[in-house]
Every structure is written in structure tokens, then in C-alpha cells.
């Protein structure tokens, strides 16, 4: 069970003066149950890439295999793929439309052909999973706060029981607390529901804390692909494409250069704290 991309190319407005090569020979394997962060700045191709994973965009050339099957085969059911690979767009609350929160979340399951009861059960489960209180289920989604709307929108995708959940900048516009809440929620869902999660973000710091693997996109290509530690060890190269590593990474490298710490691989505040305290000969945990 996995998604495999084989030399995927995507070209906008091919054969015209406005031709833009958005993806350039992307080859990737996304393992089942993984928690992956995709990082890159605007225009790096990350949004284009994720729209390929659920078949919304079709590669100009190259192949994509979902659970071993070529999704570009003529008899492949793309609409089913879109539900197996759930995609939560940026500012997903802008896509809410139904009169109640509950009806909105039912939209996906109903499109899957489930009957009202079953769709309702799915909606209940999804809303519970995103931590929505029951008293708002029958309210209009438009009266909720920004953070709550976003949870409802995520539930709308979750209710389709996707095997893979992709979230494009799920924390955009949220305040620090709201951001942490959503990221914790996503990490929780990855663990509890056992689904594959792909998190698209601008922020190295957010991603480093949560994911097991980071894919750095630049100019339509994969620049780095590895654990946070491996990827951030290229902090100089990341800077060159205006993608900074987390601040602590820089600090740790400077401390190592100053001969204080031996290991400069920390990517989160906790890790940095541990290794600094160790260098000072103190106990790590407080």
C-alpha cells in the first residue's frame, strides 16, 4: 500500500509562450502510514504536486501508482481515488456551503454513494475526531470562529475515510495557539487513525516538530528528501533557495563551531535543550 510517482512532469499551458514547467521529473514513494512534510516556497510546485496525488491534475508525462495500480489507466476510477486520497485545500473553510455543520460534513460521504444513515455516522465520527462539540453540529457553519470552521472543513474530508490525508497549509492565518491546536490534532489523527498524512507548509519549524520525513521542493524538483535532521543539515543550501532551517539548527551549528556541543543535529527546541544541557554537564529533563 503506497503511492509511487515515477518521473512525473507537469507543464502548464504546454506549447505556448506561457509554458511553465511546474513539476520536473518527480520520483517519490510515499509509504503507508507515513507522516510527511512537504516544504517549499510559493511557486515551488508543492501545490501542483499534491493535486497529482489525488488525480485532480494529470501529469504531462510520467506515471503515478496508487496501491500498485496505474491511476492513468483508462479504466481506473479517478473519482474513487479522490476519496481515498483526501485533499484539504488551503483555507478550506472557504468551501463550506451547507446550512448546517453536519450537512456539510455529510457531503463527501453522500458523494461516495453512502445512504443518509451511514453518511451521518461518518460525519459524527469525523466531527468528533476533529474535536467539535456536539451542540454546534446543527448550527450554520458560517457562524463559527475561524479555527472552528477549519476543523469542520477538515472533518468534511475526513468523513470520506481516506487512506491518505493531504493538508495544504492547514495553519495559514491562525494565531499561535490555533496553529498548535490544529497541528496537534493532525498528529493525533495520524496516530489514532493510522492514516498516511502529508502536511504542506512554509514553516520548517512547524514541520520539524511533527513529521518523520521532509520533502523540500524547489523549482518543480525535489531538492531534499529525508528525516528532518538530514534535511536541515543542508541549512546553507536551503538558505540559498530562501528556505531557512529552524533557528535552533543555526544555533546548534554555531555552538558546535564554538566547541560547546558535540552534536549539531537538533531540529526542535526540546532536542536543542537536551544537547545544550548535556554539554554543560547537567541533567536533561526538568
Amino acid at each position: 500500500m503506497s503511492i509511487i510517482l515515477d518521473k512525473v512532469d507537469y507543464v502548464y499551458s504546454a506549447d505556448s509562450a506561457y509554458e511553465i514547467r511546474a513539476l520536473n521529473k518527480i520520483s517519490l514513494t510515499i509509504e503507508d502510514g507515513a507522516f510527511i512534510g512537504i516544504i517549499g516556497h510559493t511557486g515551488s510546485g508543492k501545490s501542483t504536486l499534491i493535486q497529482h496525488l489525488n488525480g485532480l491534475l494529470k501529469a504531462t508525462s510520467g506515471g503515478i501508482y496508487f496501491n500498485g495500480r496505474d491511476i492513468y489507466e483508462p479504466d481506473y476510477d479517478l473519482s474513487r481515488l479522490r476519496m481515498q486520497v483526501g485533499l484539504v485545500f488551503q483555507y478550506p473553510e472557504h468551501q463550506l456551503f451547507a446550512t448546517t455543520v453536519f450537512d456539510d460534513v455529510c457531503f463527501g460521504p453522500m458523494n461516495q454513494g453512502l445512504d443518509k444513515n451511514e453518511a451521518g455516522l461518518r460525519a459524527f465520527e469525523a466531527l468528533k475526531n476533529v474535536g467539535m462539540a456536539e451542540e454546534v453540529y446543527y448550527q450554520s457553519p458560517f457562524h463559527l470562529s475561524g479555527g472552528q470552521k477549519r476543523r469542520v472543513a477538515i472533518a468534511g474530508v475526513l468523513a470520506m475515510k481516506p487512506e491518505v490525508l493531504i493538508l495544504d497549509e492547514p495553519t495559514a492565518g491562525l494565531d499561535p495557539k490555533g496553529r498548535d491546536e490544529i497541528l496537534d490534532l493532525i498528529a493525533d489523527m495520524h496516530q489514532k487513525l493510522g492514516i498516511t498524512v502529508i502536511l504542506v507548509s512554509h514553516s520548517m519549524e512547524d514541520v520539524a516538530k511533527y513529521v518523520q520525513r521532509i520533502i523540500v521542493m524547489n523549482d518543480g524538483s525535489v531538492l531534499y528528501d529525508g528525516t528532518p535532521k538530514e534535511v536541515f543539515s543542508h541549512y546553507r543550501e536551503l538558505e540559498a533557495v530562501s528556505l531557512a532551517a529552524p533557528q535552533v539548527t543555526y544555533l546548534m551549528h554555531e555552538l558546535r563551531a564554538a566547541g560547546i556541543v558535540a552534536d549539531d543535529g537538533a531540529t526542535t527546541v526540546e532536542e536543542a535543550k537536551e544537547s545544550i544541557l548535556k554539554a554543560f554537564g547537567r541533567k536533561g529533563s526538568v
Partner: peptide
């Protein structure tokens, strides 16, 4: 374009 894609991702036709 964006809303259409987002709803298609939820199975809209």
C-alpha cells in the same frame, strides 16, 4: 477554479 477543485476532492461531480 479553486472551489471546484476543492469540492471535487470531496467527490462533487
Amino acid at each position: 477554479d479553486l472551489i471546484m477543485k476543492a469540492q471535487m476532492a470531496r467527490g462533487a461531480d
